[in-house]
């Protein structure tokens, strides 16, 4: 099995992630799932729409995964992001890692999602009832 899983997909099934990260030498498996939240600043969100510059996003995601593997002793790393329109409660991103002991996978998972949000060329548009907004575009 591959040590790294890096994907951009139309739909995320978070139920599979545990088995994807499972490894005979891993006593700890951590998974973070990001999902669509119903309210932003008290305004009701109808959906989120994600778009990406795919070949660059995959490259950046791989760099983040490799950097995590340098920082921590990880047996497996997974980064998967969804694109397209997503409704409330739907998963949009999943990251995770497995390691011999829990500290490495906890810390690595935090690093994976934080760095993804900072660097990977994926854009999120919040669709409200009467308007839509590209998230973080303006200060």
């Amino acid at each position: 099995m591959e040590k790294l899983t890096i994907e951009i997909v139309d739909h995320i099934d978070s139920a599979n992630v545990y088995s994807e990260l499972s490894h005979p030498q891993s006593g700890g498996i951590c998974v973070f799932v990001g999902a669509v939240r119903e309210f932003t600043n008290n305004e009701e969100v109808v959906a989120l729409e994600f778009e990406t510059y795919k070949n660059m996003a995959l490259k950046e995601m791989e760099k983040i995964a490799l950097e995590a593997m340098e920082k921590w002793e990880l047996n497996k790393v997974l980064i998967r992001h969804a694109v397209g329109a997503k409704k409330v409660e739907e998963p949009v991103v999943v990251v995770g890692a497995s390691s011999a002991h829990r500290t490495a996978c906890f810390e690595a998972s935090r690093f994976l999602i934080d760095t993804l949000k900072e660097k990977v060329p994926i854009w999120k548009k919040e669709i409200f009832k009467n308007k839509s907004v590209w998230v973080s575009a303006h200060p």
Binding site: T52, I122, W123, K124
Partner: peptide, 10 residues
């Protein structure tokens, strides 16, 4: 070449 406005994945 690509223009990368503020990213907002996750």
């Amino acid at each position: 070449i690509a223009i990368i406005p503020p990213v907002s994945g996750g």
